[in-house]
């Protein structure tokens, strides 16, 4: 088994904030269903949605004194909106989950393996 991170990136184009709760409700429900599927299949490790990028704070303690800055560390228009950490036999299995996750959350999903020997999972 290998652990994969399935991350969902927002680039501002989907403009979730302008949508009403009613409009987003089907997405929430689809993601809930997807989460249940992951749990039932034993593939679930962890998942979460993140508050908007404006809520982030960056800490830099690389030079001996911690610097705390309001906002993300890069000015990129894209930001992480949420993620799943899953266990899968191989990339094909992870890609299969990603397809379903992408449909559920109505966003592109990036699949990335975790480092290290995870065979014993």
């Amino acid at each position: 088994m290998t652990m994969y991170m399935l991350s969902v990136h927002h680039d501002g184009t989907a403009d979730f904030e302008s949508k009403t709760m009613e409009e987003l409700q089907p997405v929430f429900e689809a993601v809930d269903r997807f989460n249940s599927e992951l749990q039932e299949a034993g593939a679930w490790v962890f998942a979460g949605g993140l508050e908007p990028i404006e809520a982030s704070t960056t800490v830099d303690n690389t030079k001996g004194q911690a610097l705390v800055v309001d906002g993300p560390f890069s000015e990129s228009k894209e930001f992480l909106g949420g993620f799943w950490v899953i266990k899968a036999d191989d990339l094909d299995a992870a890609l299969d989950w990603a397809q379903r996750g992408s449909a559920a959350c109505a966003g592109k999903v990036e699949v990335r393996p975790f480092q290290g020997d995870t065979e014993s999972l």
Binding site: T2, D89, D90, L91, D92, V111, R112, P113
Partner: peptide
């Protein structure tokens, strides 16, 4: 190696 791309013939559906 890193992404564990499997070494097998895909399932018949794929």
């Amino acid at each position: 190696r890193q992404a564990h791309i499997p070494y097998r013939v895909p399932a018949s559906a794929d």
